[in-house]
Amino acid sequence: MISQRARYAFKAVVALARSKPGEGLQIRELAEQEKLPRKFLEQILLTLKAAGYITSRRGRDGGYELLKPADLILIGPMLRAVDGPIAPLPCLSRTAYRRCDDCRSEAACELRIGFSKAYSDYLASLETTTLAQVMRQADTASGNAAAADVHAQPA
């Protein structure tokens, strides 16, 4: 399960991706629009900025903007930037590998074997899915839901 911090970061990045190019979103606007706590959002945006996902401009016309197009932002690395390792076990982590404290044998560990395939599939998806793909899928689902709502209303 991803953290609340990662959820808020994801919402903020999507909102920035949907904003008009060249027009940054101020933190106040972003917090109100996405219903996110401002103080927590400030910390998250600083992390995303340090990781190279967003930039900020000061002043009346300033705000936060994406540094890269949404089709170049991969979900897995972005989550790692915000939350750190995303592996369910330290012995499966690619960025923060550590042998488990109670491990007798990684090769014969039932826990590691049980999670290895599922994590590998999960990771492969996160490492190849872009923010733009997620947004397109959400837009399609949103359109389908709106169409279903229109058809469900009595005439």
Results as ranks from 00 to 15, higher is better:
residue 104 R to F: 11
residue 26 Q to S: 14
residue 92 L to D: 05
residue 65 E to L: 12
residue 132 A to E: 15
residue 69 P to T: 06
residue 1 M to V: 13
residue 23 E to D: 09
residue 69 P to V: 00
residue 155 A to M: 11
residue 41 L to A: 02
residue 102 D to L: 10
residue 144 N to W: 12
residue 123 L to F: 10
residue 4 Q to M: 04
residue 81 A to F: 10
residue 28 R to D: 14
residue 41 L to S: 01
residue 62 G to Y: 02
residue 141 A to T: 08
residue 6 A to M: 09
residue 134 V to G: 00
residue 130 T to R: 06
residue 7 R to W: 08
residue 109 C to M: 06
residue 36 L to H: 04
residue 120 S to K: 14
residue 148 A to V: 02
residue 120 S to L: 09
residue 139 D to M: 09
residue 77 P to D: 07
residue 38 R to A: 06
residue 121 D to C: 10
residue 67 L to R: 12
residue 68 K to N: 11
residue 96 A to H: 14
residue 86 I to R: 04
residue 117 K to W: 06
residue 119 Y to L: 05
residue 15 A to I: 01
residue 150 V to Q: 12
residue 131 L to M: 13
residue 124 A to S: 12
residue 83 D to W: 02
residue 78 M to W: 08
residue 45 L to K: 03
residue 145 A to R: 13
residue 54 I to C: 09
residue 131 L to W: 02
residue 136 R to C: 03
residue 155 A to P: 15
residue 91 C to F: 08
residue 19 S to Q: 12
residue 52 G to V: 05
residue 105 S to M: 08
residue 139 D to P: 07
residue 108 A to F: 07
residue 66 L to P: 03
residue 89 L to M: 10
residue 142 S to H: 15
residue 126 L to T: 05
residue 21 P to V: 07
residue 113 I to L: 13
residue 28 R to M: 09
